[in-house]
Design a protein around this nucleic acid. Structure first.
Length: 333
DNA sequence: AATCCAGCCAACCGCTCCACT
DNA sequence: GAGTGGAGCGGTTGGCTGGAT
């Protein structure tokens, strides 16, 4: 059974907003507040879809929006956040005050993805989360209102405490489930394809989205992906956080133009993980992260390569069991 | 001056999730 | 528990703009 369209399209205006429409919308929201987008156009006297009104307000009319070019600091932040979160633009935007997901998405697509494509010293390590329960299905959607509200209200710490209190995160649990289900070849280690897919985007984006779906699974108390991200972000972006670096032997060349960590069969297999384990030491020190003291926090990010050593700060190696995130090693971005 | 082309960005669209009944 | 509406997310599109030819 198909759903009715979000609004009656007939007679509604599309395309660019006029100054008058902006004024009407801004005035209405100023008087009545945000929300009830579906009924807003009618109440405000706008011949627009509610979704269109919402988008216009969020991306353009909101008072707290930052205008102007993305600064270098913001750009670096976007790069790092994208390396961790993938194409979860709303989450990324949540860490960049005054910037919208749409703006960041556009900026990435127009500026950074191309730079990333030119990048030749990185390597992408992907995990095929599409094979997870529910993996690969998620497109769009949202995190729970409670989560977002908590995040917006700066309640991340509380949520995190809650997480700690109950031990292993739901994400990790989902991954564990997934771990049971998946086969060896679920692990994909890839260089960027020779197509338009740049290093820093890659198929992992889909996977990142799939991973996002795990974050909001519906049993038990909710995890807060944003709160979790805050922890990651503070480690990634906090004072003294180093630039992500790349191992000496890594390559990010197109499959037809240079070395690749994809195996000769052309497909990611368990052998690839073995190969990676042999060739690559993923040095977490490079990210300035103290995994050994933050296992709880890093559950969603730990590795899935049985053969891969993760260098633990302070020396030694740690074998990780799960992978949640694709990793993108950046150099000289 | 005219045309072409690539890049940028605002807006649209389809999908998904959550809350409510 | 199922159905439905509201809302939010990410991917994609299309028009505008500026530079190149």
């Amino acid at each position: 059974m198909g759903r009715a369209p979000c609004c009656e399209k007939v007679g509604l205006k599309k395309g660019r907003w006029t100054k008058e429409e902006d004024e009407i919308l801004a005035r209405y929201i100023k008087e009545h507040g945000e929300g009830s987008w579906r009924s807003l156009p009618k109440n405000a006297g706008l011949l627009r879809c509610g979704k269109s009104c919402r988008l216009r307000w969020i991306n353009y009319l909101r008072a707290d929006l930052k205008r102007g070019n993305i600064s270098e600091e913001e750009e670096e932040m976007i790069i790092k956040l994208h390396a961790t979160l993938g194409n979860r633009w709303s989450l990324i935007a949540g860490h960049l005050p005054g910037r919208t997901d749409n703006e960041i998405k556009n900026y990435w697509n127009s500026h950074l993805s191309r730079r990333a494509a030119d990048f030749r010293d990185g390597v992408v390590v992907n995990v095929d989360l599409s094979k997870l329960p529910g993996g690969g299905k998620r497109r769009g959607g949202r995190v729970s209102r409670g989560v977002m509200a908590a995040a917006k209200a700066g309640k991340d710490k509380k949520v995190k405490e809650k997480e700690k209190g109950k031990g292993k995160s739901k994400v990790a649990e989902a991954e564990q489930q997934q771990q049971q289900l998946k086969d060896d070849d679920d692990i994909a280690v890839s260089t960027p394809s020779s197509h338009s897919q740049p290093c820093a985007t890659t198929q992992s984006e889909e996977q990142a989205q799939a991973s996002a779906s795990g974050v909001t699974s519906d049993d038990g108390p909710e995890e807060d992906p944003l709160a979790l991200s805050e922890e990651m972000m503070s480690a990634l972006l906090g004072p003294g956080s180093p630039k992500l670096e790349v191992g000496p032997d890594r390559s990010c060349m197109d499959s037809d133009s240079g070395p690749s960590v994809v195996d000769s069969e052309g497909g990611p297999t368990g052998d690839v993980a073995q190969e990676l384990g042999d060739k690559a030491i993923m040095d977490w020190n490079l990210m300035g992260l103290d995994i050994s003291t933050a296992d709880d926090m890093w559950d969603p990010l730990v590795w899935d390569y049985a053969d891969m050593d993760v260098v633990v700060p302070g020396g030694g190696h740690q074998q990780q069991e799960e992978v949640m995130s694709d990793l993108f090693f950046l150099d000289n971005m």
